[in-house]
Amino acid sequence: MAIDLNGVKLEKWKNDPNVSVEISKRIENALWQESHFESLIGSGQDRALRTISMQGIFSAVTPRLKAPLQGDGVRGNADFDTNYDQLEIYSLTMHPSNFANSLKSKTKLEQAMHQVNFIKESVDSLQGWLKQAIDRAIAVTLCNDFTNAVVCDSAKGYKDTTKQATIEDSTKTIAHDDTLNVQAIKRAIFMAKRGLGYDGKERFPIKPVAISRKSNEGILTRIYQYIILVDTVGAEQLKNDPEWIELQKIDKRGLDNNLFTGFLGVIDNCPVVDVGTWSALSTGLLHSGVEDSAFKQYLNILNLNNGKITPPSFYTGNQKTGIGVLMGASSILCAGRPKPDVYIDDKQDAGRKIVVGIDRNISIAKARWISYENPNSPFHNTDFATIGIFYSHKE
């Protein structure tokens, strides 16, 4: 979808600095409106992709994540000081990445001959490029270094991973017919609610995401759910699961879930959304057909607590593997300035050509429990609100 530049007087950009400001605002709105993740984004801590607005150029930001109190408290006539609880504040330092690109025109005479509005066309193309770059950065960040996961199994729905030393030990056992199914997704939802890890050990329960919607009567309501993201291959596998077919006979398509592009249906009241499959020409979720170099290109290593990089090949054995994701509240943190910067320069090549550029200063990180006071905590360095769902990526 082309960015709407109606009413913007592009021809006056040189004499009116507000032209570039208005272009930047419209690009920012279009970035999120056209993003695969648009319906998950918001500034509140109850959004799946939580945005943090920064003013000016920033070098780093450290958002806080607070753990629930775990103490027993006191009863009856007992004094407070007989059993103080412990306040645990977890933090994550986020460093910005700089996404930038530019285009140079042909000579102004050639532009006039071909009736090309170079500034308008460049802004539109650069906005599309930036949207794809940010969507890819979100996807790789979401899928890097899972600390909790469900692995699909053709016989039982999901594999018993409680005896496995690592997640990758489990995912590398995926066989051809271990496709995405309802039971595996239900397991991920149960683990999120119950607070369980792939190894059977306790984790903090994951808070669901707040989703606002307007009913037919115009009343704004808020519902709380986990969001299940799958790629197009996984979506087709899911549609062939007999249990899925039965579940969707009673779903509320168009009512509770009409905010989602790619909405497939619901499992245990949680919407399942097809966000596309990563390819050379499109964004989406990852699979082991994605090259390691393409994965690393969009990952900000400064935002990884221990520098661990796990492209899809890291989780893959003999069978091509796909990755779905359960997202809860504050699963991904996105800090940045309110809008990108747009540059227009008509002094190139002795004034014969124009350069249009775009620059976006942004930091994208997966929320992790990082405790500097108690690094021996079982919750230290674990995903805050994300569970991976691994399946055979047979098409």
Rank of each mutant, 00 (worst) to 15 (best):
I3Y: 04
L5S: 11
L10R: 07
L10Q: 07
E11F: 15
W13F: 15
P17S: 01
V21Y: 08
E22C: 05
E22Y: 07
I23N: 06
I23A: 14
K25G: 01
R26F: 10
R26D: 09
L31R: 05
L31V: 02
E38Y: 05
L40M: 09
G42Q: 05
G42F: 14
Q45A: 08
L49G: 02
T51K: 13
S53Y: 04
M54H: 01
I57R: 10
S59P: 03
V61R: 04
L69R: 09
G71W: 03
N77F: 02
E88M: 08
Y90C: 10
H95R: 13
P96V: 11
P96G: 04
N101M: 15
K106R: 09
A112Y: 05
Q115M: 15
Q115D: 14
N117P: 14
S122N: 15
V123Q: 12
W129F: 13
K131H: 09
A139Q: 13
L142Q: 02
T147L: 01
T147N: 14
V151S: 05
V151Y: 00
S154L: 00
A155N: 11
K159G: 00
K163Q: 13
K163W: 02
I174K: 00
A175F: 08
D177S: 11
K186Y: 04
R187H: 12
R194F: 10
L196H: 00
Y198R: 01
P205C: 10
P208E: 09
R213Y: 14
S215L: 15
N216P: 06
I219W: 01
I219V: 07
I219A: 11
I219R: 14
D231K: 10
D231N: 15
T232G: 12
A235L: 03
W244V: 00
F260K: 01
F260W: 03
V272I: 05
S279A: 07
G284L: 12
H287A: 11
Q297A: 15
L299G: 06
N300M: 03
L302T: 13
N305L: 13
K308F: 12
F314M: 00
G317L: 00
G317A: 10
N318G: 08
N318F: 08
K320D: 15
T321K: 10
V325T: 15
A329P: 09
S330T: 12
K339A: 11
Y343C: 08
D346S: 15
Q348D: 07
D349E: 13
D349H: 14
G351A: 11
R352W: 02
G357H: 06
I358S: 01
I362D: 10
S363N: 12
A367R: 00
W369H: 10
I370E: 06
S371E: 11
N381T: 12
T382I: 14
Y391A: 02
S392R: 03
S392N: 01
K394T: 06
E395S: 13
